[in-house]
């Protein structure tokens, strides 16, 4: 087995790392990684954002929103949780959670936790509460199994960020199954999340011969590219959803800038720019040139830079407008 130390708390980067390992790096040995995130909501591949997540709440609390490539429901994670990934070469197309569940369940038991796998491939604690959810995707003769372990997450964020009963909202995609969740800290109250992570990692690696692979700068460069292409906020929408945004910022030396726009099918639509800045920029031409641009920072930056060349905005750069577009998540969605 190979283990890769993961320092990033950015779920987009870590999902891109998993994808990179399956599509480009293609190790022939299984890879195991343990990681955590900043406050993050992770959607399953075929879920609707609007039926699963309280977008206003996550925007107001600076919670990252990312879509996984795997199936299953929406989860909340933060530095009080511990995530794991197992990337395995496989030529079997049949669904099989047994290896990943066995590795984690064994390590948890060896570190003193009482847990049991259930029929949904989740782990349940000694009082019947869910403490781990697991999901997979199969791609290019690789199986990715990743899971979340609830050690001591922020329960207030978790309860408010996720919609409590998404089925009633008539989701068009896969709906989450809400279960009563517990936390593993109850069984080890003196442990910090980082101690839990360290103990769990040691227990997993103690059971299998392994070597450590450190990502090099070339790896990291590709992972960042994949994160932007596949796991940025533009990929949050299911095909039937449209997001509307209103972003405002006062830029010293320039004035107030307001950008209204929509994102549909991961493309920028109907951009309206206004404010009290100085420029000869024609807002309609600006809107037209951006219409249909892929919703990624690099694609939008390229177009805005071109638009501002003949008609600059005094005191505002293309980069600042791109930052404004991507700074936070959206106020609302509609189908």
């Amino acid at each position: 087995m190979i283990t890769i130390p993961v320092a990033s708390l950015n779920a987009s980067y870590i999902f891109a790392l998993e994808y990179y390992l399956m599509t480009e790096k293609k190790f022939t040995d299984p890879i195991f990684m343990i990681w955590s995130t900043k406050p993050t909501v992770m959607l399953g591949k075929y879920q609707d954002v609007s039926t699963e997540v309280d977008l206003t709440y996550i925007q107001n609390h600076d919670i990252q929103l990312v879509r996984r490539c795997s199936g299953g429901g929406t989860i909340y994670t933060d530095n009080g949780c511990c995530q794991f990934s197992l990337v395995q070469p496989t030529n079997k197309k049949i669904i099989d959670f047994s290896d990943g569940i066995h590795i984690i369940a064994t390590a948890l038991k060896e570190t003193g936790f009482h847990i049991t796998p259930d029929s949904r491939n989740d782990l349940i604690d000694d009082v019947g509460f869910k403490v781990s959810g697991n999901a997979q995707y199969l791609l290019n003769d690789y199986r990715l199994h990743h899971g979340s372990l609830l050690f001591d997450p922020d329960q207030v964020f978790m309860n408010n960020a996720l919609r409590s009963d998404p089925v009633k909202l008539k989701a068009k995609g896969i709906s989450s199954t809400r279960q009563r969740t517990g936390n593993l800290k109850r069984q080890q109250p003196t442990w910090s999340p980082s101690k839990f992570k360290k103990e769990l990692n040691a227990a997993v690696l103690n059971n299998v011969p392994h070597k450590i692979y450190h990502l090099c700068s070339k790896d990291k460069e590709r992972i960042n590219d994949i994160a932007e292409q596949r796991f940025c906020s533009g990929n949050l929408l299911s095909s039937s959803e449209k997001l509307s945004f209103l972003k405002k910022r006062y830029i010293k030396g320039a004035g107030l800038v307001q950008l209204k726009f929509e994102v549909k099918e991961n493309k920028l639509r109907h951009v309206r720019i206004n404010g009290d800045f100085f420029s000869e920029l024609d807002p309609q031409k600006f809107s037209n040139i951006l219409d249909g641009t892929p919703f990624t920072p690099s694609a939008i930056h390229q177009i805005i830079e071109k638009a501002l060349q003949p008609t600059p905005i005094v005191g505002i750069t293309a980069g600042e407008l791109v930052d404004l577009i991507f700074k936070k998540n959206c106020p609302h969605t509609r189908h």
Binding site: Y46, G71, G73, I95, N134, A135, Q136, L138
Partner: peptide, 9 residues
């Protein structure tokens, strides 16, 4: 397709 929390091609 997706089933049992797994996305398969």
């Amino acid at each position: 397709v997706e089933t049992d929390k797994v996305v398969s091609q």
